[in-house]
Design a protein around this nucleic acid. Structure first.
Length: 638
RNA sequence: GGCGGCGUAGCUCAGUUGGUUAGAGCAAACGGUUCAUACCCGUUAGGUCGGUGGUUCAAGUCCACUCGCCGCUACCA
């Protein structure tokens, strides 16, 4: 049995439901898999959910559920979205499954027997919520860089000798240009490794939810250590038959989990275990929204299924087509190198231009002409050389793009052929040929149909349903591989029927208004109920009106200003991170709202005795709150 | 601070190893066409290719410096 082509997405962490980013990664991986299947490969495509770790347990408790109930629920939400997006994974692995635990244990045992792990003492600051250790110097104001609480821990833990693999990793990266993609990420990894790798602490004290270390229930594995092994566990390793699937051909992911984990830790783990390395590890960038990064806290997350609903509302297309359109836009806008701005306007633009005007219309007008000028049958004749050349070029461009995992470029190549077809039609003007009785008419019509048949092939991995619709309108069987693109003469063609109705500008307008107004808040947080505070809780916060007397920058700080404020009779010093948005001179004399009873803290060595209230703009900048009219300093605020 | 990248037409971006008039898509204007989902096709952009200075017969394309932005990574206050 030939080895299967094996594609993976990361297993997704179950702390929230899937958004456009997870959908992007998964759709892209799905497209790659479908492409390889059409090339004739046996394929395996694994996605799944990462369900271990303290955070998961805490989230479950907060919801009043068991971790099992909680993870079942969220994991199902991922499967639902993936099903809706027509993702054809062949395996969905959950890190709470037995097969995964077995693989993790076996992997650890191999590393231990080979001497690649050792028991050592860990001292440091530990951020429970991200399960990460920090050095003293990493801390910001006594908290983790992300602003989470940390606590000092001294634990005996297992360490993986990551430091021992520097040279092997660099050698592998240097010798195999397709191993780490894209190039810019590879460079980052190389410089990361060259700075020196530290051994990685791969266990934690057992908080009650995770995979325990073999023979030692007091510790569980660090989530990343176990999560990576899921790629292997999915193949059946260490049982029978895993060699049919492993090594993976492509690990797809977003950039934030690339350098430290997939491009460094994971290959080193495999080297340590004596297992083959994946062929390609590739990261894409992020979608940004306007100028802001898409994030839950900004409430600007676009949910893929909502996007499909919006397309339906704007166009009246049916559900499957809308899903395919979303897949198409995701692929077309794939942030291959950097980040890509992802807006509804961008989505609409590509829907109308590429799908409705170009592809949809080309199919429609071609079929219509075949009915008018060739009795609705595939004519007998031969494809004209110009069209043959265009088809061959499109196929070649498409294949070479897919081979280096540039799905966006492959989409370009497919669009290019459609544009050529439209131009060709105008050039050859079949309606004129029909009028004059020109004998080349059948060849021209056949060329048009051949082009569409190729388009059907090329878009199939991206828009499987649409490809089927095209085949149906041509009244030909859907293509099952890239070799088959036959056009049997005499075949009765189907009736032309628009697949992509154009976006109705009026409807789009109405929906766009929604976009600018504060959009729907992010999907109800998992623990919505328990996020409420009581009026008594709120009363604990004392807010007061203050006036700025002096303001000056703090030396060596990009963000901080030191302010002297007066609150009634009292004068206080407050440090505020508003330097980017406010010049000291503009602040003097201004009234502000401060949190009066906040515990003083030192920022950059400067004592801050309160906090200014400010909103955050799209760029993360500060927008100070100010009383609507002057109020005596010291006035309470509620 | 170190490493890397980016800055090209209104917008999104292409531009091979330096070589005739710097390209595509979208938007806009004008024209054409009628098979088609008011679609499609063609023409139109006078862009000092961030800035300055070099190398060269020749630079968007190499070098230096510089401004702005970003990524990774480190670290100081």
């Amino acid at each position: 049995m030939p080895k299967r082509t094996y594609v993976t997405t990361p297993i997704y962490y179950v702390n929230s439901v899937p958004h456009i980013g997870t959908t992007l990664t998964t759709v892209i991986a799905d497209i790659c898999t479908r492409y390889r299947a059409l090339c004739g490969d046996e394929v395996a495509f694994t996605t799944g959910t990462d369900e271990n770790g303290t955070k998961v347990m805490e989230a479950a408790i907060q919801k009043g559920k068991t971790p099992k109930e909680h993870t079942d629920e969220i994991s199902q939400a991922f499967r639902d979205v993936f099903a809706a997006m027509n993702i054809q994974y062949t395996d969905f692995i959950r890190t709470t499954e037995d097969r995964h635990r077995v693989a993790v244990h076996q992997f650890f045992n191999i590393l231990r027997d080979a001497g690649h792990v050792y028991l050592g003492k860990y001292e440091g600051w530990y951020d429970v919520s991200s399960e990460t250790f920090y050095k003293e110097t990493d801390l910001v104001d006594g908290k983790s860089p992300d602003g989470n609480e940390v606590r000092w821990v001294e634990e005996e833990n297992w360490f993986f000798r990551l430091s021992a693999f520097e040279e092997q990793l660099l050698a592998k990266i240097a010798s195999d240009p397709k191993f780490l993609l894209p190039e810019t990420r590879k460079n980052e990894v190389v410089s990361f490794i060259k700075q020196g790798l530290r051994d990685m602490c791969i266990t934690r004290k057992n908080p009650g939810w995770g995979i325990t270390v073999p023979g030692d229930d007091s510790r569980i594995f660090y989530v990343w250590f176990d999560a990576l092994i899921s790629y292997l566990a999915s193949t059946g390793w260490p049982g029978e038959g895993w060699e049919n699937t492993w090594p993976a051909d492509v690990h797809w992911m977003a950039k934030e989990i690339y350098t430290r984990f997939h491009a460094t830790l994971w290959p080193a783990m495999l080297m340590g275990a004596g297992l083959p390395l994946p062929k390609s590890i590739i990261a894409h960038g992020w979608f940004t929204f306007g100028d802001a990064k898409m994030s839950k806290s900004k409430g600007n997350i676009i949910a893929p299924l909502e996007l499909a609903e919006e397309i339906i509302a704007k166009t009246g297309c049916d559900h499957e087509v809308a899903i395919d359109a979303v897949r198409f836009v995701l692929a077309r806008l794939l942030p291959a190198e950097g980040d890509t701005n992802f807006t509804r306007a961008e989505v609409d633009k590509h829907y109308n231009a590429d799908l409705a005007n170009d592809l949809g219309n080309a199919l429609n007008r071609s079929l219509s002409m075949a009915h008018k000028f060739a009795e609705g049958k595939i004519p007998t004749g031969s494809v004209e050389p110009a069209m043959t050349a265009a088809i061959e070029r499109a196929k070649a461009d498409y294949a070479s793009a897919m081979d280096v995992l540039r799905v966006d470029k492959a989409v370009d190549a497919a669009c290019e052929l459609v544009r050529f077809l439209n131009k060709y039609i105008d050039d050859r003007a079949p309606w004129a040929l029909a009028k004059s009785g020109d004998t080349s008419l059948p060849d021209v019509l056949l060329s048009m149909l051949a082009s569409l048949r190729t388009s059907e092939q090329l878009i199939r991995p991206i828009m499987p349903t649409v490809a089927d619709r095209i085949a149906a309108q041509l009244n030909l069987p859907a293509q099952t591989d890239f070799a088959d693109a036959s056009l049997p003469a005499g075949t009765e063609l189907g009736e032309p029927k628009p697949i992509f109705p154009r976006i109705d500008p009026k409807k789009a307008q109405e929906l766009t208004v929604m976009e600018t107004t504060p959009t729907t808040p992010p999907p109800a947080p998992v623990a919505a109920e328990s996020n409420f505070i009581t009026i008594e809780d709120f009363a604990k916060v004392q807010l007061k009106v203050a006036r700025v007397l002096e303001a000056e920058p703090i030396e060596g700080s990009d963000k901080l200003l030191k302010l002297q404020v007066v609150i009634g009779e009292e004068r206080r010093q407050v440090v505020a991170g508003i330097k980017a948005n406010y010049a000291p001179i503009d602040l003097v004399g201004r009234q502000v709202i401060i949190v009066y009873n906040l515990k003083p803290a030192k920022l950059r060595g400067v004592e801050s005795q309160g906090m200014l209230l400010a909103a955050t703009d799209a760029d993360g900048g500060a927008i100070l709150l100010q009383p609507d009219r002057e109020a005596p300093e010291g006035t309470g605020v509620k």
